[in-house]
């Protein structure tokens, strides 16, 4: 067990480390800019005048990203959950039917109805699960740019006169994209939670949904916070693609201003804005994670917990 002072020192070191790293990055960027455009000089006055509209663009970028991310969270949870459920094999349904119908032969017609329903239900679950598998594969396997184009084309052709058409098209495309990715994150997270946890919850009399809500999900969310943060940051950067479809987010203004002759100023300002957001977000999430950390859950395990989980695997094997 590392001592408290050691851990404190370690935390301080991390803080100093990250400040140093940031300083270094800005240093490198600054000197590179100097080498590249030193004799031209950066027009800081100009940068000051455009920062306002850039911030407005940033606001829209954040809006698109956050909205699609939040919607994707719901989709991701459902997709992940469905993809982890097991379906009853057809053979077992048939056998159960034989057993129950032997039990109460007098209610033959209602038995057949029940059997028919259970087959339809199982078939439906199977089909839905396969569709989810396909959905995730398509989202992962094709470029987001192409996906946005696809959705946008549908909007162009069928919803020509819709207000905010381009924005909505991009938003929808990004939502289904991140939904697929988050589905995969949720699937991994849900599968990491030990099956004994569900069994214990069910043994207490919790329904399937409540076991999910009060036992599995709280653990899953803690486990998948880092990959979800990654996904959000990735999505924010990907939202830059929206400029191509006329959505006036940060990159849109960057391009516009760059074409007005201030190439370096525009892109430096844009990069800085993106970086400030992603960096702050990552730090805030890490803080939250540390605040809500639970011993024995996730990767930052205390040594005592490590010993326990080894014993557990030995016992269940």
């Amino acid at each position: 067990m590392p001592s408290l002072t050691y851990r404190l020192r370690r935390a301080n070191l991390n803080r100093i480390e990250s400040i140093l790293a940031l300083a270094l990055i800005f240093g490198v960027i600054a000197s590179m800019t100097d080498v590249l455009i030193g004799d031209r000089g950066l027009n800081t006055v100009y940068m000051g005048t455009v920062v306002d509209i850039f911030l407005r663009g940033m606001y829209l970028s954040l809006y698109i990203t956050t909205a699609s991310f939040a919607l994707g969270l719901g989709i991701g949870f459902l997709v992940g959950w469905i993809r982890t459920t097991r379906t009853v094999p057809f053979k077992r349904l048939l056998r159960d039917f034989r057993l129950t119908s032997a039990d109460a032969s007098s209610h033959a017609s209602s038995q057949y109805l029940l059997f028919g329903l259970s087959i339809v239900w199982t078939g439906l679950k199977y089909v839905v699960r396969r569709i989810m598998d396909g959905y995730v594969e398509i989202m992962r396997g094709t470029p987001l740019f192409v996906q946005i184009f696809f959705v946008w084309s549908i909007f162009i052709v069928f919803l020509t006169r819709m207000p905010e058409r381009d924005l909505l098209a991009v938003l929808l495309a990004m939502t289904i994209n991140t939904g697929g990715y988050q589905g995969e994150i949720f699937r991994g997270g849900l599968q990491t939670v030990h099956s004994g946890q569900v069994e214990a919850a069910r043994a207490l009399g919790l329904s399937r949904w409540r076991a999910m809500r009060y036992v599995v999900l709280p653990q899953t969310l803690r486990l998948i916070t880092p990959p979800l943060t990654n996904e959000y940051i990735g999505l924010l950067k990907a939202s830059a693609l929206a400029f191509y479809f006329g959505v006036q987010e940060l990159t849109y203004y960057a391009k516009q201003e760059a074409f007005s002759g201030h190439v370096f100023e525009a892109f430096i300002l844009t990069s800085a804005l993106y970086l400030i957001v992603t960096f702050t977000l990552a730090k805030v999430i890490t803080m939250i994670e540390r605040r809500y950390r639970i011993p024995g859950l996730g990767i930052q395990q205390a040594p005592a917990a490590g010993k326990l989980s080894r014993k557990e695997t030995a016992a269940s094997g």
Partner: peptide, 11 residues
């Protein structure tokens, strides 16, 4: 029910 591997809710 009480289980071999305890199965206490970790969180």
């Amino acid at each position: 029910m009480v289980f071999q591997s305890f199965n206490l809710f970790t969180h």
